[in-house]
Every structure is written in structure tokens, then in C-alpha cells.
Computed example of a mutant assay.
Amino acid sequence: MPLFTPLARSLPATVPFVGPEALERRMGIRFAARLGANESVFGPSPKAVAAMAEAAAGSWAYGDPELHDLKHAIAEHHGIGPENIVAGEGIDGLLGYLIRLAAGPGDTVVTSRGAYPTVNYHVAGNGAALDFVPYRADDHEDLDALLERARRTRAKLLYFANPDNPTGSWHDGAAVERLITELPEETILALDEAYGDLAPASALPPMSLMRPNLVRFRTFSKAYGMAGVRIGYAVGEAATIAEFDKVRNHFGVSCIAQAGALAALSDQAHLRETIGAIKAARTELSHIASRCGLTPLPSATNFVAMDCGGDGVYARRLLDAILRRGVFIRMPGAEPLDRMIRVTVGRPEDHALFERALAEALAEVDKPEAVQVAG
């Protein structure tokens, strides 16, 4: 008799992302610049580092399974109640819990083709079906098409990121509020705001806007610079958030992570300084793309998507050539977004390494003839 369920046996043994460490082992190199995972090279608040170091000394004890202090601090930060918050192992972990709660075999989850792939991973792992909507011609997620598809399929979940990964694009808050208002009551909107700290204020509906079928996700991984700590949170109506307690790993957030997030949240001056550094670095990356003949997309994140001017095959060849030169970047995996490469902002020395690697890759890789003529 088989040891595992039919669903488990049907799934590929895969992960949504191939990490830079795996690429280094596979390629036999060491990356000199790590610009592919949308981490913040500017690091966490020194207060967070000190708090985590102090908490490490007491890590013989489990962290508070109710995350009481952290939830109350987040609630105060946003002007909502602690009952509206659940904290977990980053947005990835919390998305997994929501999908487990809301979608099973026979259910449909709607997302954009080429959007954040961890959603697809969790949906497949829970036996639900994925339905994809193409991006608009301007490389924005198509809110009208997502809404129509959710209605037509009677989707249990609709995933939408604002600002978006992998394009860096964003919608204004009024458009997002319309999506929230017009979504069928039977469909939960998973609103991923991982890059919300970096977005224009006009892109974010007020956190006080709540619906039973709305769950918003935030993280300490991006602007707060704590990707390796694995800490994020979801916000929603109290009854909706209470459902997470039925399935979450109650000891999943360590005492170290809780202490670090608390300290990071208290240091808004450091956050503002980091956001300023990210915006300046984002501008410099866009200039590098333009100098090298690529088209940078406007971005409200800590990365810049760059249109390489060809197709997915051409962009992949450029990507491979850049990786071989010791610079870790990524590219979207689905057409037509796969004509781009995606580069995380870094320090000046990181950008210099990337610009040199990109220039050498462009000289090495032949551009498709049709694209050359069109240009």
C-alpha cells in the first residue's frame, strides 16, 4: 500500500524558488552580488539586531504562542485591534494557512499568470484548482479581468498583490477599494501588500477597511530588512482572523523573531531612512538599465523589472550570462513577463558589478534578428 495520499503522490517534488545557494552549488561559483530575492541589503534596525541577540540568550524557551505583545504593537501601529491580526512565518506561511482554510479539492483559486508563485505552490498542495488571468498590456495586474474570472468560476480565493511582484507596478487605492467592494461575498481576497511600506500612500486603502472576505498581508522581510527572520502578519475582521488559530503552527514564530519584529516596529526612523535609500538605489538601477539599452518599468518596490527588448528565450540567455558572472538576479517565469529580468536594489558596489555583468552579457548574447529590425 502507498504510504502517502494520492494528492501527495501526484505533486512534483519542487519548490517555488531556486535559491542563490542552490545555484552556487550547481554552478560551482560564489555570487559577488545578491540581487535576486528582493532582500534588503540595508539590513534591519540596529535595535532589532540587539533585541534578537538578547532574545537568543533565552531561546531555550518557546516563544509566546499567542504573540500577544507583537499583535498589540502592530495593532497600535495601524490603529486597529489586536483581534484583527495574526502573525506567522512570513507571508508565505500565512498564505499557506489561508489556502488550507479556504480552498480544497474541487475549489478554484484565481490569480494572475506570472504572479507570485508560492500561491500556486500552496494551492496545488491543497488539491484546489488554479485559474490564471493574463496581465494587462501595460504590465499591471488586470483588476477587471480578475474580478470577472472570480465571479465566473465562483472562486474561493482571489490572490492580488499591490504593489506587484514581479513587475513592481501598482494600482491606486481607489481601484483596490473597488475590487474589495465588488468582489463576490463567497470569494476571499488575499491582498498581498508585502511591498506596502515602499508604495505611494495613495496606493493603499486604509487599514481600517475590513470585510469578512478580505485578508491583507504585510511582512518584515522587505523594507524592514528581516527576510531571514521569517515574520509577517495578516489583517482582517476578527472572525476571519480567528480561523487561523485552527490551523496555524502556534510555535512557528520564535522568541527571536518576535523580539526582532517588536524592536523593528518601534524604530520607524530607521524604516524611513531605509525607504529613502531603497528609492535612491531604485533610481540608480533604472539609470543602469537605460544606459545598457533596456527599458526599466516604474516600480513601487525594492526591485526594478527591466524589459530586455526580446522574448523569454533572449531574456533567459541574458540571465544565465549574468549569473555566470557572479551576480544573482531573477526573471519572471511566464509569458509575456519573461521578456524581463528582475533586479533587487543594492549598494553602489552591487550595482557596479551588475552593470558590468549586464554589459558583458549583452555583448555575448545575440539579440533576435526580428527584434533588432523592429528597434
Rank of each mutant, 00 (worst) to 15 (best):
A361V: 09
A300V: 04
E369S: 11
V215C: 01
H171F: 14
G28K: 08
Y97W: 13
E335L: 14
D172G: 07
D131C: 15
A51D: 00
D138F: 08
G196P: 14
E185P: 00
G252C: 11
C255G: 14
E177T: 08
L189F: 08
I74K: 04
L179P: 03
A128I: 10
A263Q: 02
E89C: 13
S208T: 11
T111L: 15
G232H: 09
D267W: 00
N249G: 03
Q268E: 15
E66R: 05
D320I: 11
L191W: 05
A352R: 14
A73G: 04
D138Q: 09
E355P: 10
A150P: 02
H72T: 13
K47G: 05
H78V: 09
M1C: 10
V253C: 07
A55Y: 02
L183W: 10
T344M: 05
R25Q: 13
D197N: 07
A269D: 05
V247Q: 05
A261C: 04
K246Y: 00
L101N: 05
P206H: 02
G293V: 13
R356G: 00
L130F: 13
R25S: 12
A239R: 08
L130M: 15
G81S: 14
I241S: 01
G36K: 02
V327P: 00
R342Q: 09
P296T: 06
R9E: 13
L204Y: 06
P16E: 00
T219I: 14
T167S: 06
E186I: 01
V86M: 12
R211M: 12
F251N: 11
G28Q: 03
A102D: 06
D307L: 14
F160R: 00
G228N: 10
E273N: 01
V49R: 12
E237A: 07
Y97L: 09
A357R: 03
E83D: 15
S221L: 08
